[in-house]
Design a protein around this nucleic acid. Structure first.
Lengths: 232, 232
DNA sequence: CCTACCATACTTGTATGGTAGTGTGGTAGG
DNA sequence: CCTACCACACTACCATACAAGTATGGTAGG
């Protein structure tokens, strides 16, 4: 019994799905890019079936758009979705951070603290991708500590759209220090149980994510809906 | 050109997906029920492929659980998921109804009014399924009128779990009049722009959906996680 | 030169066969 | 009677073949 019972090797579908999703979120597969079941299957070394099933999943998340008998395309960024993702996060995270101020497990508090330390390291190294991951993890810990992990997962499906625009912004603008300070302030407010302060900073923090969206739409018009037709 | 250009006949996958999802939400396919690609394909008169792809979609929504090489099962109702769905709706719908009080299009206001009239009709006819649909439509109109339709859709993925427990409750308990009165009160508060009142009633309204959850878990233990093992 | 048509090379949708892993019931052995 | 084993039926996973719709480039006709 040397193969651990829980350590199932991931299915082809899962690996393909994860790979494609990562590439879309990283903008390695730019919005509007044409995909094809056959081509992806060749590139990834599997048959069309797992690729196709990944497309189904990605389509349900709104990351790709499948046009029958015509093709599959990486979805253009929809500004409405970005804004609504911010809207959802604003109201849900404000509520969660208030909960956290009332009661938050020590283990999760330590996790936040460790996370913040790693954020500093990433800023020193100018490792933006890593900082991005840590940012996600930070907020996840907040939800987890309040027993609202499923809520975080539900947000996730909208969040991918917000994250694509944030990734776009990451290239040009670098405001890491500000981001860290907000995270740190929220952490200390939670620790001190200062709900009003935590909620206020959280709201500001989430506004940061959509700042300059209009500027981005101007700079990369063909990445957005009704900016270009998407097929260059 | 008698076949309308927009009226694409739905794909097999779409019809299979819709059918299965409806049956799961109606509890015609009870939580814990074993499914199988082959059996479903025979019943629905299609091949295994569209069935399989429907399973993938349903699995992503958490409505079924696929265990490789073992089987596919209708998910048990997770009380944590139900509660978090309520949590999400509470905070998002409170925010939305406040927006609605500040500004709400006349067309949507009329739609709410019509919807309420139909609710009354459904209550007279004791048509619970129809009332359930109208309830969903009512809240959807609220989000739509505030330009937050995508947010409603995102809620939808959590909402299915809440709705299954509500459907379970519908069988035994019938509190339709109360539900209608709350809808009507919210409508009038929106019309009058009374945000505080609207928000308060909305919060109460959403609490109604999870009342007696413990009672339901007691009555149908094998429908819930850790109530029974799910495979009777 | 311009237009209409059509062969062709794509695309996704569906069906089916083979593979590997899993649960189960019957059976041989203690 | 109880236990260990094993053949078998069943599952989902993946690969592949076929079908049907779509965009495109070349060509024949005006």
């Amino acid at each position: 019994m040397y193969t651990n019972g829980r350590a199932q090797e991931p299915s082809a579908r899962e690996t393909v799905y994860a790979k494609l999703k990562e590439q879309i979120l990283n903008l390695e597969l730019a919005p509007g890019t044409a995909l094809s079941e056959k081509e992806s299957s060749l590139v990834l070394g599997v048959s069309r079936t797992p690729v196709r099933e990944s497309f189904v999943r990605l389509a349900q998340e709104g990351l790709v758009q499948v046009l029958p008998q015509r093709g599959t395309f990486v979805s253009l960024i929809d500004p409405a979705l970005v804004e609504e993702a911010r809207f959802m996060r604003e109201h849900l995270e404000r509520a969660v951070v208030r909960l956290a101020c009332a009661h938050f497990p020590d283990a999760h508090l330590h996790a936040l603290e460790d996370n913040l330390a790693l954020q500093l390291k990433s800023i020193e190294r100018e490792d933006d991708r890593r900082l991005f991951e840590l940012d996600e993890a930070y907020h996840r810990i907040l939800f987890d500590g309040c027993g609202k992990l499923n809520t975080w997962r539900a947000i996730g499906q909208m969040n991918v759209h917000l994250n694509r625009s944030r990734m776009l912004r990451l290239v040009a603008d670098r405001h890491w220090q500000h981001l860290y300070e907000q995270h740190d302030t929220i952490f200390r407010a939670v620790k001190a149980g200062d709900a009003d302060r935590a909620e206020r900073v959280m709201q500001e923090h989430l506004l940061l994510g959509v700042r300059d969206l209009a500027h981005l739409m101007d700079k990369y018009p063909h990445y957005f809906i009704s900016g270009g037709d998407g097929k260059p």
